[in-house]
Amino acid sequence: MDAATPGNRGGMEHPGRIVVVSADVGVGHDTAAAELARRLRDRGFVVDRHNLLDLLPRPVHWAFREAYRGILRWLPWSYDALFGLASRSQLSVSVLRTLLRPVRRRMRRAIPPDTRAVVTTYPFANQLLGPLRRQGRLTVPVITYVTDVVVHPTWLCPGVDVYCAIRPAEVPPAGAADGVDVTFVQPLVSRAFADEAPAAAAGRAERGDAGRRPDRAESGDPARLIAEAASHAGSAGIDERCRRALGDSVGDAVAVVAALLQASAGGR
């Protein structure tokens, strides 16, 4: 777990604490979590980062990570088979959720009382946090940043308030899952890679689209959405007004922020 680090606001009181849950499986989940934490700290939030696998007994942590590495190295086809199985049946996801049940209390203890929101970048974390949220044992929003190009069933769990995904991620068809709010946002790319390369800029100029604005659905910073949700959704999390606002924002994260502000202010 990373130590909590407050953002720099010139000595002013920070706007709250956000807990980010990832996993040291591969590098994609942790990389997204690190960039998200940096952006939230820049906005003044205190950010706690947790490795989901650290909550497991040490032998289970080691076995899980090594099994994952072994599958990718020696049996890559089985990785696809596992995801295919989860897509065809909810049973595997239900089994996973049941296996994680003994860890719920430890997860809940890792979330300080002053937390304003919990953000995940790893799908199995949703299967742990979603039930806590749905049962009322976790009263702050649970928001997930999907690191895959598919909002896969392993990401989906009742109790998760909002799923942030990047274009062109595939999303569940209407009616496939209840209460699934998907908002399209920008990728969580580090500052070191965010600046447009000169060659790419030159290519756009040659095509005549140098001044073209990015797609509205890709124009929102996920850290901004999360910060606003944490600051304005209230201690009970994202309520029905905010859910309707998210649904009416047509995927534009900037519009989502404005809608959340308006919906929250309207209920006060």
Rank of each mutant, 00 (worst) to 15 (best):
C242F: 00
S22H: 10
C157H: 06
A176E: 12
A201R: 15
P158W: 05
A192Q: 15
I166K: 03
A176M: 06
A197G: 02
N126T: 06
G159R: 04
V142K: 05
T139D: 15
V149C: 05
V151A: 09
S89E: 09
R43A: 11
H61T: 04
Q90L: 10
A117M: 07
T31H: 05
R213I: 14
G234Q: 04
R106P: 04
Y68I: 00
R241C: 11
D195P: 09
R17Q: 11
P102Q: 03
V140F: 03
A265S: 15
G70N: 08
A3T: 13
T120Q: 05
A229R: 01
R38W: 01
R133G: 06
H61S: 07
Y68W: 09
D195Q: 14
R134W: 10
P222V: 13
P6D: 06
S78W: 07
L156G: 04
H50G: 00
G208P: 06
G11N: 09
G175L: 05
Y122I: 10
D181V: 12
G266Q: 07
Y68K: 00
F45W: 14
V171H: 02
V119K: 02
V150M: 07
P15T: 12
G70W: 14
G84C: 05
V162I: 14
A125L: 05
Y68C: 06
D221N: 12
G130A: 14
R137D: 15
D181F: 03
P6Q: 05
Y68Q: 00
L225C: 08
A169P: 00
N8G: 06
A117S: 11
A34D: 10
V93Q: 11
R109F: 10
